[in-house]
């Protein structure tokens, strides 16, 4: 739609453009004034700290490693304790077995000794008929 020269629409557009131009001019002056005022001020500037994904990944990896080390250490400690407990139990069982073997051996020895003694005590009477027979032979 073309606006006719001298029409109310054209005048309205011109007025709007004038307002826009003035506003843009004021805006520019305002920014320039603000910038000039701030530029001259002494200021302490702190460095901007950027957190990149690399840093975040590094931290995450570090945390995982730390957690892994702690867990690994705890597992290793628990494993060693378990191994030591098993070793102690095995040693105790071995000692017990040895003691049992020694006791059984001693019992066997005692039993054999007792048998020997019993047999030796019974032999004279057992040999009695033979002795008598020998006596009879001698008498004849």
């Amino acid at each position: 739609m073309r606006v006719q020269i001298g029409s109310p629409d054209e005048k309205h557009n011109q007025a709007a453009d004038a307002v826009l131009d003035e506003a843009l001019k004021n805006f520019q002056s305002s920014v320039h004034a603000w910038s000039e005022a701030e530029f001259g001020k002494p200021r302490t500037v702190s460095a901007v700290h950027y957190t990149s994904w690399r840093v975040v990944t590094g931290w995450a990896l570090g945390c995982v490693l730390a957690a892994g080390s702690v867990t690994g250490g705890l597992y290793e400690r628990h494993h060693r304790q378990e191994v030591a407990r098993i070793a102690v139990a095995a040693e105790a069982a071995r000692q017990q077995k040895l003691a049992d073997e020694q006791r059984a051996l001693k019992e066997n020895e005692d039993l054999l000794a007792q048998v020997d003694s019993d047999v030796s005590r019974q032999v004279p009477s057992a040999m009695e008929p033979l002795a008598q027979l020998m006596d009879v032979d001698e008498a004849q």
Binding site: V31, H32, W34, S35, E36, E38, F39, R43, V45, S46, A47, V48
Partner: peptide, 23 residues
């Protein structure tokens, strides 16, 4: 001054504009 002014207008943050200008 011009770089600072542009960054100030872009961020409306004086400290940030100064820091970015230095960078």
């Amino acid at each position: 001054p011009q770089i600072f002014r542009f960054l100030l207008a872009s961020t409306r943050d004086v400290d940030l504009a100064e820091t970015l200008t230095q960078e």
